[in-house]
Design a binder for these strands. Structure first.
Lengths: 146, 146
DNA sequence: ATAATTAAAGACAAAAATACCTTTAATTAG
DNA sequence: CTAATTAAAGGTATTTTTGTCTTTAATTAT
């Protein structure tokens, strides 16, 4: 469904929302370990999420790291997909037809349409904070590597 | 959502169901042209679909080509995904977690579950024939390259 | 000011997906 | 039987994705 990059971005964002604050930043190595992702590749992805301060923030130097503000926790998960440029999923034809549209639909178009809407709704209505709370309850990432 | 390979497989299967019969086989070049796919890559994909006669059939030599039997037209689209080994989509965690399950769910698990079910249902209930008829009505692939 | 720590940036490497090409095998038509 | 046609098979090439490594810049602590 999603690329590795997107999966890591979503997991990292949720983890950062769980564990960080302006006064408690998380290092790359901690994040990568927790979400079971390759550190250097994860660094690239986190950079995308910090660009224009769109989702998370970062600070260099000792005691630096990544964190997310309370206000950014109110952003929908979709924002993460946008930052990673994986947003096309939501307007692509399921058969990959460039010309597929309401007036020239592919044979799956009208059946896939409501499913796509639900997917969009899922990522639009769930905020980063809500998901981090759910992850809290499930103590999700702690043993992820196992 | 799907890989190029899967998109081509689905489009080719639908096109073959539209246009072929045991007495009217379609050549690789015709299929690739119609569904707007690279011929050589499409050849590989069609080979997967003919393995064990699982979805389509092929005959070599003059007037040879690809076709699908009436009985195979009754197969669900899901069969195509299985032939291409893209079936994992339907049991993968949306966050890519290996350990995600009913008892150890990721924060999106229970919200994604019904959507996944609908996706499975879509590919399970639609037969190749039904989709080829829909494609007929929309004269879908004829001008796909445009 | 200096040294230590951390992310940013950019180059590089490996793996996977996609695409192409050549040879072989099967089939048919003549 | 021979030549022509078509898919099968296998190798190669390109592109994209994923992953690594090194250098640079920022920040902090001493």
């Amino acid at each position: 469904m999603f690329s590795k990059a997107t999966e890591y971005a979503l997991r990292a964002t949720i983890y950062i929302a769980q564990k960080s604050s302006v006064v408690k930043k998380l290092s790359l190595s901690e994040i990568a370990k927790a979400i079971d992702s390759p550190p250097s590749f994860t660094a690239k992805i986190l950079q995308l999420l910090t660009k224009d301060n769109c989702v998370i923030h970062s600070v260099r130097g000792p005691n630096g790291g990544f964190y997310i503000t309370e206000s950014n926790k109110q952003l929908p998960l979709k924002k993460v997909l946008e930052a990673i440029n994986e947003n096309e999923l939501f307007d692509k034809c399921i058969l990959g037809l460039k010309k597929c549209s309401e007036t020239k639909p592919c044979p799956l178009h009208f059946q896939y349409k409501p499913i796509k809407q639900e997917l969009i709704h899922l990522f639009q209505t769930n905020t980063i904070q809500e998901l981090s709370e759910k992850a809290d309850n499930e103590s999700l990432f702690i043993n992820n590597a196992i």
